[in-house]
Amino acid sequence: MPLAAWVILAAALFSIGLYGVTSRRGAIGILLSVELMANAVNLLFISFGRYRGDHLGQVFTLFAVALTVAEVVIGLALVILLHRVRRSDVRVDEVKELHG
C-alpha cells in the first residue's frame, strides 16, 4: 500500500470538510465540518508516522486531538451564547450585525 494512497485519502476527507465549512449555514454544521478536516489531518499524521516507522505522528495526533476537543468545547459554548442572545437557530449568515 503506497503512502500516497493514504495521503490522497486524507486530502479527500479534508476537501469534503472544506466543502462543508464553506457551504453550511448553521454554526454547528460548520463545526462538524471542521471536525472532519481535523480528522483528516490526524489521519495524515498517523500515515506519515507509520511509513517512517516512528512515534512522532502518533504523539502529534494525541496533542491535536486534545486541542481539537478543547476547541469544540469553546465553539459550542459560543454557539450557545449566541443562541441565547439572539434567541434563534444560529445560522451564521444571518449573524451579520457587524459588517462594513
Binding site: 466543502y19 464553506t22 457551504s23 449555514r25 448553521g26 454547528i28 445560522r91
Partner: peptide, 11 residues
C-alpha cells in the same frame, strides 16, 4: 435543519 447554500463556490 442543517441547510447549505452557495454550494457552488464551496464545491
Amino acid at each position: 435543519p442543517n441547510e447549505s447554500s452557495e454550494g457552488g463556490r464551496a464545491l
